[in-house]
Design a binder for these strands. Structure first.
Lengths: 105, 105
DNA sequence: TCGCTTAGTAGCATATATGCTATGTTATCC
DNA sequence: GGATAACATAGCATATATGCTACTAAGCGA
């Protein structure tokens, strides 16, 4: 365990998020985080432990930890969605066209 | 090859997309498509063949076809990003919190 | 028709993700 | 200190994705 927030529990972030100003900035920052970090936030917002998410996602806590932590970046879309879903969130995959396509050689 | 648009080439969609009205509706519809379908559109918008995308993404045309077609839905994020990038597009992964988190049991 | 291009598909070897157990670490509570 | 909880990590077996080749099909034009 790296952070000292092991027992922050359900109400942890809620108090801070009660402030609209804080919430706005918070959500903007979230988008900039790595997927693992976003996952971790999402789970904590929902007040769930890794073990709880694991149970809902039908896997183990260590798998959740792997997805949230380390330098992991080879996510499989289905698995990611399962976990996000278990945290009560939604996964949006958006394929944007480039500024003006890719007509270079 | 299933569609008869084998030779639609670069200008194919451009003519239609010249109409702002068409473009708006088109882009809205795109979001509803499966990832494979979105990929296919993205590539065609860029006026590229599967082989060309494959070369840029450092893989083979059959791999591109697999990603675009069939009932495939086990995408690996890195690979997906590589292909989207080769089509000149951008991949957005957005992790939304649920309506009000997930405080159920 | 023949040749060329594009795309879909099958089948395989290899790389990698996943699921799991066990263990280590840190914080909290008694 | 001892017990417990939350999380991280290692290591392994298995499932699955990936990369590749070869093949098939379909459209297009000479």
């Amino acid at each position: 365990m790296k952070v000292k927030a092991a027992r922050m529990g359900k109400g942890w972030l809620d108090r801070k998020l009660a402030s609209p100003k804080f919430r706005k900035g918070f959500e903007e920052e979230l988008q900039k985080l790595s997927i693992g970090e976003q996952l971790s936030r999402l789970r904590q917002e929902a007040g769930l432990t890794q073990a709880q998410v694991a149970q809902r996602a039908k896997t183990t806590a260590s798998a959740i930890s792997r997805y949230e932590n380390s330098e992991y970046d080879r996510y499989e879309l289905r698995t990611l969605q399962r976990i996000v879903c278990a945290c009560g969130g939604r996964l949006n995959i958006i394929l944007e066209s480039g500024p003006k396509a890719y007509h270079a050689a």
